[in-house]
Design a protein around this nucleic acid. Structure first.
Length: 242
DNA sequence: CCCTGATTCGC
DNA sequence: GCGAATCAGG
């Protein structure tokens, strides 16, 4: 198999979509993941976070992270490992976790729990569990405020969604709004934040879960072994034909 | 062991 | 340019 324009385009698209080299190789057929990686590099596709980080790079990254923590107005570039001059390993002054302000709403898992709705392929890879309870307050648009100690340089642009007043308009008064959430009602979001009719399911919860029985069925699904998983449909409808 | 991406180097 | 072999971390 050779690298035709179509195959290169598929490689680019899938690589940029975050598919692993193995997945790309399987999708293309006739090539190994090594071939995919090699080609990706030759194409100049920027490296995605590799599980392999050399000791030097790790130190550089730690330093960069420290910079990011203290200087929130600059975005540190990941420097070349060869040329980087490692800054003095200044002692990490761990900011004491500041007491979270009194939550406006006794609800701290709305945002995280809402994620499974967006069925992006990256999301399916992530286990539902990995979250630690952090006390946060909820802002007027339903966004979760960061405590000062958690602040970090944003790695991705903020979602381009309009903020909307938490107090919804009267015509949606019967819908379950952010302020109506409690441990007793299903927190499954319907629609998207910022849309005028955004609301929550509001059904009686499946006891012990944040969702009703129906939405628990959506939120919690058995993870199939990787081998048995069908290649996820590409979010962009497959390789672009040009 | 499995997986991952990066790199090297003979072809 | 290509990709198997190898490396190294999770």
């Amino acid at each position: 198999m050779s690298w035709t324009d179509e195959r290169i385009d598929t490689l680019k698209t899938m690589w940029e979509a975050g598919q692993t080299a193995s997945q790309i190789a399987e999708a293309l057929g006739g090539v190994s993941r090594n071939a995919v990686i090699g080609k990706a590099h030759r194409l100049g596709l920027q490296s995605r976070p590799s599980p392999v980080v050399s000791k030097e790079e790790a130190r550089a990254q730690v330093a960069a992270a420290q910079d990011a923590a203290s200087m929130t107005d600059t975005v540190p570039e990941v420097a070349e490992a060869e040329t980087v001059v490692i800054a003095e390993p200044e002692p990490v002054i761990a900011p004491a976790p500041p007491p979270a302000p009194e939550p406006v709403v006794d609800e701290d898992e709305v945002e995280e729990e809402a994620e499974p709705v967006a069925a992006a392929p990256a999301a399916r890879e992530r286990p539902v569990e990995s979250q630690q309870p952090i006390l946060r307050s909820v802002g007027p648009g339903g966004f979760v405020r960061q405590s000062p100690g958690e602040q970090q340089a944003p790695s991705t642009p903020a979602p381009p969604r309009r903020l909307v007043p938490a107090r919804t308009a009267p015509e949606y008064a019967d819908k379950t709004s952010l302020l109506d959430l409690s441990d007793k009602v299903c927190k499954w979001p319907l629609g998207h934040p910022g849309e005028p009719d955004f609301h929550f399911c509001g059904e009686k919860v499946n006891p012990g879960f944040p969702y009703c029985v129906t939405h628990c069925g959506h939120a919690y699904q058995a993870q199939l072994p990787r081998r048995d998983r069908r290649a996820p449909p590409l979010p962009f409808g497959g390789p672009r034909m040009r």
